[in-house]
Design a binder for these strands. Sequence first.
RNA 1: GCCCAAGUGGCGAAAUCGGUAGACGCAAGGGACUUAAAAUCCCUCGGGUUUUCCCGUGCCGGUUCGAGUCCGGCCUUGGGCACCA
Length: 822
Amino acid sequence: MTENAYHPQSLEPAIQERWERDGYFHAPAHPSGEKFYALAMFPYPSGQLHMGHVRNYSIVDAIARYQRMRGKTVLHPMGWDAFGLPAENAALKNGSAPAAWTFSNIEHMRGQLKRLGLSYDWEREIATCTPDYYRWEQWLFLQLWEKGLAYQKLSTVNWDPVDQTVLANEQVVDGRGWRSGALVERREIRQWFLRISAYADELLAGLDTLQGQWPDQVLAMQRNWIGRSEGAEIHFPLADGDDVIKVFSTRPDTLFGATYLAVAAEHPLAMKAAESDTTVARFIERCKHVAVSEASMETQEKEGVPLGIQVRHPLTNALLPVWTANFVLMGYGEGAVMSVPAHDQRDFEFAHKYQLPIRIVIQSAENSPENPHELEAALTAPGQLIHSQSFTGLDSQAAKGAITEALVARGLGQKTVNYRLRDWGISRQRYWGNPIPMIHCPHCGVVPVPEKDLPVELPTHYQLHDPRSPLLDDPAFLQVDCPQCGAAAQRETDTMDTFVESSWYYARFACPDAEQMLDARAADWLPVDQYVGGVEHAVLHLLYARFFNRLLRDVGLLPKDGAHDEPFRRLLTQGMVLKDGSKMSKSKGNTVDPQAILDRYGADTARLFILFAAPPEQSLEWSDSAVEGAHRFLQRIWRMVQDYTGPVPTLAQPLGDAARDLRRAIHQCIERVTLNMEDRQHFNVVIAACMELSNQLARAEATPGSDEHAVLGEGLRTLLLLLNPFAPHLAEALWDKIGDGVTILTHPWPVADPAALHSDTVTLVIQINGKLRERLDFPIASQTKELEASVLAHPEMARHLQDKTVRKVIVVPGRLINIVVS
RNA sequence: GCCCAAGUGGCGAAAUCGGUAGACGCAAGGGACUUAAAAUCCCUCGGGUUUUCCCGUGCCGGUUCGAGUCCGGCCUUGGGCACCA
């Protein structure tokens, strides 16, 4: 073993020490020149880094380091999504306090991240479970309460009757509590909600501005989740009394085909009917029961019972019966639908089952039976209206507008838009989370904690014995004087969903020490230029963060200039890390511990492999031998640079042929790498191009003093610059030897020299009828006509062309010539 | 059922606009060096033929001088949503 062999285990910590000492990764308070904010979705401090983390952070670090070399002022922070259930579970399992457990995990994982050599500005580190962070979230909650964007309503939870606690969905296993094994009950309790629905339209429209910057898949998922549908609200007056039943329909053109109404089991009219009708009461009871087991929901048969009441059709005044049915959702629209069996498949099936009338009112080209008994399925296509009074003859599109207008004229309806998106329930009946800053007073009702009393600190001294929140039993936390009347009152004990913390942390990173939620630094650094994380957050986290960014704007913390509406300009969703074809997980026992890879090969090998094995958005198959391959490549680079003797010479002009070809390869590599760093971010191709170049450099006949030796020097330096984002420790150590004395971290990214790319000749592929036959060289400046003539006259072509008639010659400049013969 | 991706060697994958299919790497086989091994270096590596062609990018058609790439129709896999009126 020679003293200058490649030893990442000692080399990497030494380089990391240098980076830390020189403070290269500290971002200034305000960016100077062009800024670039690179961010990975921050981790939950579970205790150990896994390969998914390594992949995520290697991608972002490569981008951050690349952007620094492009001369940008880079912000690249890291923090901890530190509230949440696992800390409570761990506390119950081994008696640790959630806070202590969390902070010790953070300690360990921070060490692992540092060992990976990720270029974070550690001075901006945030842990969301510290009062310095969550107090601002409480502050924002008070602003939202003022604006009516935070409110309380009844909502269903899973209740464990043995442990006397609310369970999260993932704590319910086969309908039973995960710990007690007791059958879970559903309970309605008052919970806190944020009115994200008020931003539905804006969140939907904002997606258009992200087109091309976010994966189409994520945009599509968010669009579906918001689920906007246009239609009409239609009022059906009750036959007895003054009341109306409101329904929502996307097909007001089929209004004359409505033959009955159906309301949800929880609908007030159904509840009222149940008081005097035992059949209805029993049906409602059964609906509640079935809803408990979610599996049966999917296969559930469509069922219903008549309520014994009638409504009048808003345009014909015909009497229609009202049913309650198990497929009508109380939470969507008005909890009631008009049923048009002829033109809606679900209504069709229901009408058949209960012998309800079917009226055909739309005729379409493909299918136009006039007799309802001929129908085998609902006619859902748009078409021309029939049997629809004065609207007969209109097409569906026109009829939607005309019928809606007629309803408006009678005061029995209006054009309206409905969303699938529901308001965000943020209440958690858990201990380890951010306390909701509200007080319940027996006289004043719900009263906000005064701003001066923030933060409501979460006590951290409890020893947990069962899953019940200790806040419920702690008078020191619970008892408080009402801020309004001074009477004895109680604190809210619900804490916030941890998605709330992750909805604004990216903004806090810009000003982690601000004495308000955000200060002017946030506007300077936002939006995040490149965000990277798992596709599992495609909807919830990414939608909530988009919502919160607009809330921050609307309480005046971010500019209303249009440029700060969206939090994340560009999004990359990285694929999973697989082993033996399935996701790495402890339960499957197929995990690879990043620590073991670091110990054995070092951070550069781990990072290089994980970026080389697949494009970042695709899933990645772990391969021990491919890791070896990545390590071999780094060793080869190490040796090539060590073997490069003498100072790097300057290039002689003009160069010999071999040196010129080598230099062209170097600059073609720069072009190819740069393109992939910017546009497609296919780092696997970038690394492949570097490997290709290293192979070419290794083959060079470079005796010291020759042209090629000088070009080899240029090639090796270029290679180190191109590899720096992926193997930064090795690149820096070797740069010490053959670089220019200035740190490689901020060295300008190489630019391809047009003179080096130039060639006097071009090799064209010659095809006959589209099939490859020859490769021939031609002068670079040849005109199409000249090329055509010289290829047909070329001696190599004679045997391909004999006994053939040339019909056509296609010349694609710089690429190929296709000779069409017969 | 609806929406969105993706199907290329033994394996991971390349191939900006329609223009040389399989770059780069892994595995495998052969060779050099070595007492030997490791390491390193060189050669081969889609299939069929054996000296020049034929076939080949999930399947069937189409457009084109030319299709992995575009169009139509299927099949398979993965992901999302799912009684949304």
